[in-house]
């Protein structure tokens, strides 16, 4: 089963993303409440897709994207960034750093599912 790492500091938002993904019934979901947890998880689990919020304390989502893209192990791992419509600049930065796709909050569950399906075909 493919593994998806969901990094999001708001527990309720994370819960929603996780239940949306779990409804697809074909992935193992790993949750991270901040950038540290994500960094700890990456080397331990073979993650097939990373979904991350941008605005997080200490290690932000952009830094996580940059970390993945500059490490050979995770260079090919698909990345989805999640942000609000306000943070357009941050979103552009994320894509420039190598994120594969973005989602703007609030989004419909189907949007997320389609994106995941496309990236993990």
């Amino acid at each position: 089963m493919k593994k998806i790492l969901v990094t999001e500091d708001s527990a309720a938002m994370r819960g929603l993303i996780v239940s949306t993904l779990e409804a697809m019934e074909c992935f193992e979901i790993i949750e991270a409440g901040n950038g540290f947890e994500a960094l700890r998880t990456l080397p331990r689990e073979k993650v097939d897709l990373v979904i991350t919020d941008i605005n997080m304390p200490d290690i932000n989502g952009l830094e996580l994207v940059n970390f993945c893209r500059s490490n050979p192990q995770y260079q090919q791992t698909p990345l989805i960034i999640i942000s609000t419509e306000r943070s357009e600049r941050d979103r552009k930065k994320g894509l420039a750093l190598g994120a594969d796709a973005y989602l703007i909050k609030p989004f419909q569950p189907e949007e997320l599912q389609q994106l995941v399906r496309r990236l993990l075909h």
Partner: peptide, 17 residues
Amino acid sequence: INGIFRDAHSIKGVAGM
């Protein structure tokens, strides 16, 4: 201030969903 901002941001995100 950034913490307050992020909390408001979280409420918005989840309420929208």
